[in-house]
Structure formats: C-alpha cells, structure tokens
C-alpha cells in the first residue's frame, strides 16, 4: 500500500499535474445524476416486485428513441418531445407490468421465469426499435456550446441533467416521505405480506412504481442519447452500472440508490484516471461497475441500506 502511494506521489510522470481534478469531479457529478435517473426505477421495482427487471435497460433506450421520433422526425418542440418521450416510456413500463409481469406473478411464476421473461421482453423491445429505426447510430444533431466554469468544461445539456436529477431527487424524497402513496411504496418494499394485510392497495402501488420508474429511465435515456448519440444498445450499456448501483445501494432503497449512484460514478471516473495511468483502455470503465457489484456481494450483500432480505 505504502509503495503504491509512494509511486503515486513520486512517479516521474507527475500524472496528477495533468489531470484536471475538478473536471473529474464534475464528470462524476454528471454521471451520478444520469445513473440516478436510470437506476431509481430499477431499484424500486426490484424491491416491490421482488425480481430484477432486465427489460429496464430498454425503457431507457425506448425513451431516447421516442424523443428522437417526436423531435427529429415529427419536428415537435424539444420540451414537448421530451415530455412525450417520458410519457411513452412510462406507458411502456406500465404496460409491461400489467400485461406481462403481474399475470406471470399471479400464475406463480418462479423468480427465474420472471427474469427470463424480462430478458425476453427487453430483446423484443430492442429489436422492435431496431426494426423501426434501423440498427445504426442516430443523432439529435444538436450542438452544445461549451460553458467554462473555472477550469471545468460543461454544456447546457449536462447542467440541465444535473438540475433535473436534483429536482427529481427532491420530489422523490417528498413523495416517499410525505405522501401516503410513498409510505405505501416503502411499506410494500419492506414487507409485502404485511403491507397487503394492512390494507395497502398493492396493485395501485406497484403500477405507480412501474410507471414512475420507467418514466425516469426514459428521461435518462433522452439525456444519454443527446449527450452523445442514439444506438440500440444505449440502455443495455448502462444496465451493468444500474445493477451495481441497485445492489450497492440496497434493493428498493431510494436513498441507497442516491448514494450509490454517486459512489459508482466517482469510482468509475477515478477508475478511468487509473486506467490511463496504467496504460489500459478506458473501455474498461464498466469493469469498475463489475468490481463494485462483486465486492458488494462479498462484503455487504444487503447493500448500504437494506430493505429486502437477501437470504432465501
């Protein structure tokens, strides 16, 4: 350890001089916000319905493609397009719950069957999108001017993402803590049997969570696509991160997800610094998520804030 620190400090490359640490922090903040939006729904539905929905990735992609359709193809107003996209994502999430997962659960499908069905649904959505929009790279053709805040570069889009994520976080906090619905969500995630016994309308609570989760996922998809480009694997590429965050934060825990999003994005950005330093490809950044995921399972499988009991 001491050797590593020594090497870090006195390495002849003086690598820390080159790295703009504030920029690293800024990137972590941006990605943390994106991850938060992308993951909250996954974590909440996982906590509530008790299975990981692998199709969640495609809600992200779907939102992005819908925004593209409304904005770039139909030529609607930007804000209207984004709003409609978020709504259609929510609709997709709600429909997949009502038409697929709820009936499967009521037929007593096993956990593995639910997971398989969710992967199937994900592929169905993804390839339908590919069929309609083509498998290539699409772009919103937006050019963002750069904003310099001191030594940090950013764009209006990223600032908007940050502001949005903060507003969403605050709204979610109010929802979960102050409203009856939110309390019902938390109670259900905590103990479904008890919640059902105490007269909570499980169907309504679940449906709402699925709608909300998919809507936020779609929102994050819009940001992700506008930031770079729109590809069919847009959502799948952040699914690994989303799962790492879900497990690290504790399944079904909003505050855990909140913390874990930023922890993961910070470790990823530091990881990228380390990767360049080691001379490895920056592609390995998603390996950081894998490491976080596996270490969570080893060290603290119930996550930072545990709501769901892990052991069978």
């Amino acid at each position: 350890m001491a050797l590593i620190i020594y090497f870090f400090l006195f390495s002849p490359y003086r690598w820390w001089m080159v790295i703009n640490w504030l920029q690293v922090l800024m990137n972590s903040l941006v990605w943390g916000c994106m991850y938060l939006l992308a993951t909250v729904g996954l974590s909440l539905t996982y906590g509530l319905s008790r299975f990981p929905n692998f199709a969640h990735a495609e809600y992200i992609t779907f939102g992005a493609y819908m925004a593209y359709m409304f904005f770039s193809i139909l030529g609607l107003d930007l804000y209207l397009s984004v709003g409609l996209a978020v709504l259609s994502s929510a609709l997709l999430g709600g429909l997949s719950y009502i038409l697929l997962f709820k009936p499967l659960k009521s037929r007593g499908a096993s956990l593995i069957h639910l997971m398989v069905a969710s992967i199937g649904l994900g592929l169905l959505i993804r390839h339908t999108l590919m069929q309609v929009f083509g498998g290539g790279i699409l772009s919103f053709k937006m050019i963002w001017s750069c904003i310099f805040i001191g030594p940090v570069v950013t764009t209006p889009l990223l600032l908007t993402a940050i502001v949005t994520a903060f507003i969403v976080a605050i709204l979610l906090h109010i929802l979960l803590m102050k409203t009856k619905l939110g309390k019902a969500i938390r109670a259900t995630a905590d103990n479904p049997e008890l919640a059902a016994a105490s007269g909570i309308d499980m169907d309504r609570v679940s449906l709402f969570t699925w709608l909300l989760g998919a809507a936020l996922a779609g929102f994050s998809g819009v940001f992700l696509a506008m930031r770079s480009s729109l590809v069919p694997l847009l959502g799948w590429k952040v699914l690994l991160q989303a799962f790492a965050i879900t497990l690290l934060g504790g399944i079904g825990s909003f505050y855990g997800t909140l913390a874990a999003s930023f922890i993961l994005s910070l470790s990823e950005n530091l990881g990228v610094v380390a990767l360049t330093w080691l001379g490895l490809s920056a592609d390995y950044r998603s390996a950081v998520a894998f490491i976080v995921l596996v270490s969570t399972l080893i060290v603290k499988p119930e996550g930072l804030i545990s709501t769901v009991k892990r052991r069978a």
């Binding site: 593995i112 497990l247 052991r311």
Partner: peptide, 8 residues
C-alpha cells in the same frame, strides 16, 4: 445468495 444475484 438468492438466484437473482447469480443471474445479475
């Protein structure tokens, strides 16, 4: 752990 953790 439970089956889903292995799956993920």
């Amino acid at each position: 752990l439970r089956e889903d953790f292995l799956a993920i």
